[in-house]
């Protein structure tokens, strides 16, 4: 959205195989300066391999990969000075305190921010002297983000930053990431949560089996796939999907997580027809509702399976 100048990340026709398995199979994308870019996809889609190549941890088999306009295989040391990597496993030293860890990680870099400033940035002031092993899940994620910010990086990699957190901790972490975005940092993140991608990412790429299936802003992706809105209710054995697919306005009917979802071009017509049918059968559709199609629907439509399986 706020792209300007040359992209911070440029990936063109990237391939990476492990034996016979094509983990990444000819993907291309760019991330602009100040942009938050999301890689979405199920486990094994190739997200982690892509990120690790960008971080200089793996060599690509073919294709070109640049960060800050520099080739990652040839300029890994200078790139590493300027990127921040969020560690899913927080610390090498679980018995060191928050302050000690930030001091230590700071010493790995030529330039680093004052520890106090980092602690304040992630709101861990009260736990500054706590050993990292004694932090709560949310606090550990905050620490791991603080560790990613130690060198005041221009580009930050966040690998599933909120996995395993309760909704409240997730919300507060989202605020933290939005703050980084506000300070002009470029961010490449992976996530399992469609809601998170919709909330944080300027653009997303949906990956599966090493390919990028779809790329764009979240509204673009939804609009490209779904002109419809979704009518949903608790699935009932008396209302088979095949039959519902023929109701007025319905383009597609599906069962997801115990709910029947009818994608409809004409919501009023569909609901009228549905209620007529349930009247006839003398049943009540439970938890009936209407919503816009979501990124989750896009993903399901693209891959035929839910993201979090």
């Amino acid at each position: 959205m706020t792209q300007s100048g040359e992209p911070v990340i440029g990936v063109a026709n990237l391939c990476k195989c492990y034996g016979d398995v094509k983990a990444v199979d000819g993907i291309s994308f760019q991330v602009g300066r100040g942009e938050v870019f999301g890689l979405l996809g199920p486990n094994g889609a190739g997200k982690t391999t892509t990120i690790e190549i960008l971080e200089g941890l793996r060599e690509p088999d073919s294709g070109s990969v640049t960060v800050f306009g520099m080739d990652v295989t040839r300029h890994a040391p200078s790139i590493k000075q300027r990127i921040g990597v969020q560690l899913q496993t927080v610390s090498l030293y679980p018995r060191l305190t928050v302050t000690e860890l930030l001091d230590l990680f700071g010493s790995f870099y030529a330039h680093h921010l004052p520890t106090k400033q980092l602690i304040d940035a992630v709101d861990l002031g009260e736990r500054a002297k706590a050993r990292s092993m004694n932090l709560s899940g949310g606090q550990q994620q905050r620490l791991s983000i603080a560790l990613a910010l130690v060198n005041d990086p221009e580009l930050i990699f966040l690998d599933e930053p909120t996995t395993g957190l309760d909704p409240q901790a997730r919300r507060s972490l989202w605020d933290l990431i939005k703050g980084l975005q506000g300070r002009g940092k470029s961010i490449l993140m992976t996530t399992h949560y469609m809601e998170e991608a919709a909330e944080l990412c300027d653009r997303v790429a949906i990956m599966d089996h090493g390919h990028i299936l779809e790329m764009g802003t979240v509204p673009e992706l939804i609009g490209r796939r779904f002109k419809e809105r979704a009518v949903f209710f608790d699935t009932s054995p008396k209302l088979p999907v095949e039959q519902l697919g023929k109701l007025d306005g319905v383009t597609r009917a599906a069962v997801e997580d115990g709910q029947t979802v009818l994608y409809s071009r004409d919501v009023a017509g569909t609901i009228g027809a549905l209620l007529g049918l349930t009247d006839q059968l003398n049943i009540d559709p439970h938890n009936l509702g209407i919503r816009q199609a979501t990124l989750e629907d896009v993903f399901l439509d693209l891959t035929g399976r839910a993201l979090r399986d």
Partner: peptide, 16 residues
């Protein structure tokens, strides 16, 4: 242990 947890790999992403 550190390798299994991915810590060694992640340290590789710093200039250390």
């Amino acid at each position: 242990q550190q390798r299994e947890k991915g810590i060694l790999k992640r340290i590789g992403a710093t200039p250390l």
